[in-house]
Simulated assay, not measured.
Amino acid sequence: MIERRPVLDFIAHATLIIGVLIVAFPVYLTLVASTQSASDIASARPLSLLPGSNFLETYRVALFGGESSMGSKYPAAAPMMLVSLISALIIAIGKITISLLSAFAIVYFRFPMRSLVFWMIFVTLMLPVEVRIGPTYEVVSSLGMLNSYAGLTVPLIASATATFLFRQFFLTVPDELVEAARMDGAGPMRFFKDVLLPLSSTSIAALFVIQFIYGWNQYLWPLLVTTNEDMYPVVLGIKRLIAGEAYTEWNVVMATAMLAMLPPALVVMLMQKWFVKGLVDTEK
């Protein structure tokens, strides 16, 4: 029997609603600002909370570039979003692929110092990009990978966290499956492809969402390895919009920020079911 506690239910729902409002209000304010003109934003004290009438013009300038109504020239966000999309997909798919193969080798292959190899991988969690960014940049520069997708993605595609998660999952796979595959004459890669990958589908989906957002939101590393505007990701482009003009048209900046939020939001919404299942499902 479940005891109903109306007061506690009310407090819980009120807390959730307040939390949603706190998170959603900046997004709503960004959307409202993107529909107004630059003069309206500059003169408004405080900013109006009602949408303006400059929606189509602002988003046209933000997405395709060109000259705004105030005479400022802005680059197109569409090419920058394409760079971000390609980079995020390469990082997400690369991290998952390398982590799957690394975890598979650590769990199912017997080789000297196997545990040491795993812990060496795991220790890299204590070395974030900011700590190793100097030597990494030197290597990328020496290999001629600046201003390229390889330079944007290759240093970021290894993931100790994903390797650890896949290793822990592979350890829960019954030994009977390994023996059955061996009796059927399946080699290691066939066992990996036909057994482990289907079982790991929800975990792969959850990690894909996390790693896609991680790759999309990269700022510091692209700031170092890109000097060509054609290779700017959209997050870096937003900063350029703010610093590139003496007079900032905040409506265009806000419109670009809204466009930059759409792909990660779509990925989360479309893969929400798989994402939640991959994080909480215990029936492996």
Rank of each mutant, 00 (worst) to 15 (best):
S48V: 06
V173E: 01
Y74H: 14
T202H: 14
L50Y: 07
V267P: 03
V195I: 13
T97L: 12
M81I: 06
G94L: 07
G244Y: 04
Y247V: 12
E3R: 15
P112H: 03
V129E: 14
Y247P: 01
L262W: 04
E229A: 15
W221Y: 01
S72H: 09
R45Y: 09
A78L: 15
P263R: 12
F164W: 12
I242F: 06
F192A: 10
M258V: 11
T163P: 03
E138W: 04
M258E: 06
S142D: 06
L8N: 02
V209Y: 08
I41V: 11
V123W: 07
T161P: 00
T248F: 11
M189G: 02
W274T: 01
R110P: 02
V23G: 02
L146G: 01
R4F: 09
D194N: 03
Y108R: 03
L16H: 00
M183F: 09
S148N: 06
E3I: 14
G151Y: 04
M254E: 03
N147S: 08
L89D: 02
N54Q: 08
S37W: 04
S39W: 04
A103L: 05
L49E: 11
V123Q: 03
N147Q: 03
L259A: 09
G244Q: 10
E138K: 00
N54P: 05
H13Y: 13
A78Y: 09
A76H: 06
S148C: 05
R4S: 14
G144T: 04
T153M: 09
W274I: 00
I213P: 02
I210Y: 02
R45N: 15
P6L: 03
E179A: 11
A92N: 09
A14M: 10
S102W: 01
I96Q: 06
L116I: 08
L63R: 00
L165A: 14
G187S: 08
T202D: 13
V83H: 00
I204H: 04
G65D: 06
S201C: 08
E3T: 12
F10M: 14
A62I: 11
S72F: 08
V178L: 13
I2A: 13
S200G: 09
H13W: 12
F170G: 12
L82C: 06
V140M: 03
T202S: 15
V61S: 05
S53Q: 14
N54K: 05
G94D: 10
R60Y: 11
N251A: 15
A105G: 07
Q168T: 11
T35W: 01
A78G: 13
P79S: 14
I210D: 00
V280P: 01
F212D: 01
S142G: 12
S84Y: 04
I98Y: 01
F208Q: 02
G215E: 02
F164H: 07
L56C: 01
V23L: 11
V280I: 09
T202E: 09
R132Y: 07
V178Y: 13
M254P: 01
M80Y: 13
T172M: 15
T153A: 12
G151P: 10
L197M: 05
V129G: 10
Y247W: 01
P155I: 11
Y137K: 10
